[in-house]
Design a protein around this nucleic acid. Structure first.
Length: 507
RNA sequence: CGGGGCGUAGCGCAGACUGGUAGCGCACUUGGAUGGGGUCCAAGGGGUCGGAGGUUCAAAUCCUCUCGCCCCGACCA
């Protein structure tokens, strides 16, 4: 008899310490690790594949709407950031600044910066200003519009506190920037791209989201309107999963993006910008992960299935491996949502440890293959979205035939589970005392998981927002598009407000 | 930047109060036995004890300074 197996692969559990659970899951799942550089991460192959799949899907969706990719510099001249007043306000801090362009030996075996730059360069925290510079040259006539550009890039924001995937000093993202002849068209584009994000997050990451707009205080600096999708994590906090901004003519004026209209007037363009980042991976982990590790939705998983040959006697090896290889070949021939199924073969020694590694990594399907299965032309299959002991023998050919359907069932199951969770912890709250109770943990010393999304009325005053933020660390995450026209008393001051807004604690 | 915690093998930790040969578990390597849910036995490899300075015959341990990380807060486009 071996050691008694712990109940869960991840310690602590979500309920014991959610923040620590998250870190342990990231580590155990082999998705990423901390780097020697403060606040930065190394994305390991198992995690980077998720990003590659997100990129592939999103990029296709963008191109389907006419967007083209381009690339702009990493460095932005300091004065560019000074062009838009509100933008300056929002970005004044938290930027990496390049002040030198050379290293010299310091005489003690080290290196010291030399060659001071006349004007410092900023490592882009976002690229509105430098892309605006290009746009101003590219746009002269209404015939040049709309201009629909996206770039896949890394950006740097010198955050005070970082969390792997959720908020890192450097992260990968895409930023779309468009310029239009009319405000209507720009507004439509803003909404169109938000819907693209919602589609990706719900249908690929299997994470349900709320769609809506930010309150003025939560807007992107310099934006006229910020649309967002918000997801609920398993600690019931909100995660902003994507934003799309209608910038009005603010950035066009700052960057001098003008065109001559059909009626021969000179006008400023109307611009938008929209982004989603590697933060999505953090959202995926916190939406689906359990106390045994991460659970990857099949449509973005690095690989969908792992084959684990069981070789009891050396003379069985050839037979088992042959059966395994042939199964792998058949599986790889199956198309799953337009792509090949990816198969891992793990022939490390059979035993519980091997299986647990794959559970922690969250692969959707685990398949054990031993002499017994071969005799019956079957395979022994475990699904990551069900209890880990629940495994069943399936006819080999049936398994291959059904695999797309099985993966879709897992995908669907993950989405529905997350949707039920969000719905369960979303409630209409009309009394101030109920609102405060909802967001106050019973144990102040070691807060349990509590709260959720509160749908309440708000009078529209920033004072009420900041009061609630100060009291409870709760903010308006979004004003849902479908909030309706029902009127009710502001949860804070009691004055009348139209439509319920969603309050929550957030990442 | 404020409060708290922590830096000792790849990972997790003990040793520190009371200074005296650098330890344990996991992982890794080799050999053997196992094998359908966290295997067993045996033998190995791996360390500037975060860094600098000080006290001492002697420092992981005591003192001073310093760097870094984690958690909570402030911040978060």
């Amino acid at each position: 008899m071996g050691k008694k197996a712990p109940k869960t692969a991840i310690k602590p559990t979500r309920n014991e310490d959610y923040a620590e659970w998250y870190q342990q899951v990231v580590k155990a799942s082999d998705l990423a690790e901390r780097s020697p550089v403060r606040g930065c991460m190394v994305i390991k192959p198992w995690g980077y594949a998720l990003w590659e799949n997100i990129v592939r899907e999103l990029d296709d969706m963008f191109k389907d709407t006419g967007v083209k990719n381009a690339y702009f510099p990493l460095f932005i001249p300091l004065n560019f950031l000074e062009k838009e007043a509100e933008h300056v306000e929002g970005f004044a801090k938290e930027c990496a600044v390049v002040t030198h362009h050379r290293l010299e030996k310091d005489g003690e075996g080290g290196l010291t910066p030399a060659g001071k730059l006349a004007e410092p360069l900023i490592v882009r925290p976002t690229s509105e200003t430098i892309i605006g510079e290009s746009f101003s040259k590219w746009v002269t006539s209404y015939r040049d519009l709309p201009l629909l550009i996206n770039q896949w890039a890394n950006v740097v924001r010198w955050e005070m506190r970082t969390r792997i995937f959720l908020r890192t000093s450097e992260f990968l993202w895409q930023e779309g920037h468009t310029a239009h002849a009319t405000d209507t068209e720009a507004v439509e584009r803003t909404r169109m791209m938000l819907d693209v994000y919602a589609n990706l997050v719900e249908n690929y990451l299997a994470v349900p989201v709320l769609r809506g707009r930010k309150s003025p205080s939560e807007r992107f600096p310099g934006a006229v309107d910020t649309l967002c999708i918000e997801a609920m994590m398993q600690d019931r906090k909100a995660l902003q999963a994507g934003t799309s901004h209608f910038l009005g003519q603010n950035f066009a004026k700052a960057s001098d993006i003008r065109f001559q209209s059909a009626s021969e007037n000179e006008e400023y363009a109307w611009t938008t910008s929209w982004g989603a980042s590697t933060r999505l991976i953090g959202g995926l982990i916190m939406s689906h992960g359990d106390d045994d590790g991460v659970i990857l939705p099949p449509r973005v998983a690095s690989s969908q299935v792992v084959l684990m040959p069981i070789i009891r006697k050396e003379e069985d090896r050839a037979k088992v491996m042959e059966y395994t290889q042939s199964l792998a070949k058949d599986l790889k021939g199956v198309r799953y949502h337009g792509r090949k199924i990816r198969v891992e073969i793990d022939d490390s020694p059979a035993g519980g440890a091997r299986g647990w590694e794959w559970i922690k990594k969250g692969i959707p399907l685990r398949v054990e293959i031993g002499p017994r299965d071969i005799d019956q032309n079957s395979v022994f299959v475990g699904r990551r979205d069900t209890e880990h002991r629940k495994k069943e023998s399936v006819n080999r050919d049936q398994f291959v035939t059904d695999i797309s359907q099985t993966l879709d069932e897992i995908q669907q199951n993950l989405f529905e589970r997350a949707k039920m969770f969000m719905d369960k912890h979303t409630r209409d709250i009309d009394k101030k005392e109920d609102f405060y109770a909802f967001f106050t943990p019973e144990n102040k010393e070691k807060p349990e998981i509590h709260g959720g999304f509160a749908r309440s009325f708000w009078c529209g005053a920033e004072d009420c927002e900041s009061k609630i933020k100060e009291d409870l660390k709760v903010t308006i995450r979004c004003i849902p598009f479908d909030s309706g026209s029902e009127r009710g008393a502001c949860i804070c001051c009691g004055k009348s407000g139209e439509g319920r807004v969603v309050f929550a604690k957030s990442y």
